[in-house]
């Protein structure tokens, strides 16, 4: 036995978000796309020099004649994906979330979304999932994309959900933005008998004392935090909201209306313009005045560093989140 692995303390572009000893699956997006492509000949894969880092290389190897390497040109990637969709194909276009959201926005908006084209934009490094610094940390991608008409936005939690989301977003007619966890992706939701449904939030566990509403990797953090809180006799409900837009407001409002428990939204995103503010708006419109808090990234350009360090620093690690919740409750 070599003992526990030392905690990573250096910045890395590609750092696994899996915690020590967590079950993982390799490249769930790539494998799910290959499986789907067998029955959907119109699916093509396109990327801007990031096949390897978006798990699209699995598809490229399995279906080389359906893979388009567009080079390091994200505006072209999105425009060409629009053109492909106009000719009847369903492109899965991959890059990093920062480049899609910041650099290629106009092309996703006008070339793809305005015509409601069947392009699936799948992006790695959402929120704070790299220690590389602001050039690669898409801390505001949801804020940028939520305002885009016609666009469906999905933020899956784990490998199981990514596998299920791939056929679901392909079946949906219209553009989709999906935040991607890649590489060795944790497997968590298999223990909850969970099935992804586009547009639906799911109560993973109930609890009378606090309602945690979360998406993406923060759902696995919320589940662990709920376990930790149970030791303090605090029962936390966890409502997982993998579809950010359209938001399942009915389920969110019904859950928040129950028993006057406080509502905490946890997201791997800036507190500006993401799930937290979307939930707050839904609650306000429904006249629900629950105590409301957000666990999310600050409205700031974040530091470079090791992911575990940064997740602690910015409050989205399990321990930081649990500490925050204990203080609030």
């Amino acid at each position: 036995m070599s003992g526990a692995k030392p905690r990573l303390t250096t910045a890395a572009m590609i750092a696994s978000i899996a915690s020590e000893g967590q079950k993982t699956k390799a490249a769930p997006f790539g494998h799910a796309l290959v499986a789907l492509a067998e029955t959907r000949p119109e699916i093509v894969g396109m990327t801007a020099d990031l096949a390897k880092y978006t798990d699209l290389h699995i598809f490229a190897q399995a279906c080389p004649d359906r893979f388009y390497q567009m080079g390091m040109a994200e505006q072209l990637l999105m425009a060409a994906a629009a053109g492909m969709a106009k000719e009847g194909f369903t492109p899965f276009a991959t890059t990093y979330a920062v480049f899609a959201a910041r650099r290629a926005y106009d092309f996703i908006c006008l070339a793809i979304a305005e015509e409601n084209l069947d392009v699936k934009v799948v992006c790695a490094l959402p929120g704070l999932t790299t220690g590389y610094g602001p050039s690669h940390q898409a801390t505001e991608d949801l804020a940028i994309f939520r305002g885009m008409p016609n666009l469906t936005i999905v933020d899956p939690c784990d490998a199981l959900e990514i596998e299920q989301a791939v056929p679901a977003i392909a079946a949906h007619r219209g553009p989709v933005y999906m935040r991607l966890l890649r590489g060795a992706v944790p497997l968590v939701l298999d223990e909850y008998g969970y099935r992804f449904e586009l547009g639906r939030a799911a109560m993973l566990r109930d609890g009378a004392d606090v309602l945690l509403i979360s998406s993406g990797l923060m759902t696995m953090r919320a589940l662990e935090a709920a376990d930790a809180l149970r030791k303090d006799r605090i029962e936390a409900a966890v409502l997982h909201v993998p579809t950010i837009k359209p938001l399942d407001e009915a389920t969110i409002v019904a859950a928040a209306a129950k028993s006057g428990r406080p509502v905490v939204v946890a997201e791997n995103h800036s507190v500006v313009g993401g799930l937290g503010e979307a939930v707050a708006g839904a609650l306000a419109r429904s006249g629900i005045a629950a105590r409301f808090r957000q666990v999310g990234l600050p409205d700031a350009f974040l530091d470079a560093g090791a992911l575990p360090t940064l997740h602690d620093r910015y409050g989205i690690s399990v321990s930081a989140m649990t500490t925050t919740l204990r203080e609030w409750l």
Binding site: V44, L76, A80, A82
Partner: peptide, 22 residues
């Protein structure tokens, strides 16, 4: 196409030309 956001047409054309070849 919906043009007007200038500089998009040729990239869309690349995608359509690739699609036509497919």
């Amino acid at each position: 196409v919906s043009g007007g956001s200038l500089g998009q047409g040729l990239g869309i054309g690349v995608g359509m030309a690739l699609g036509l070849k497919r």
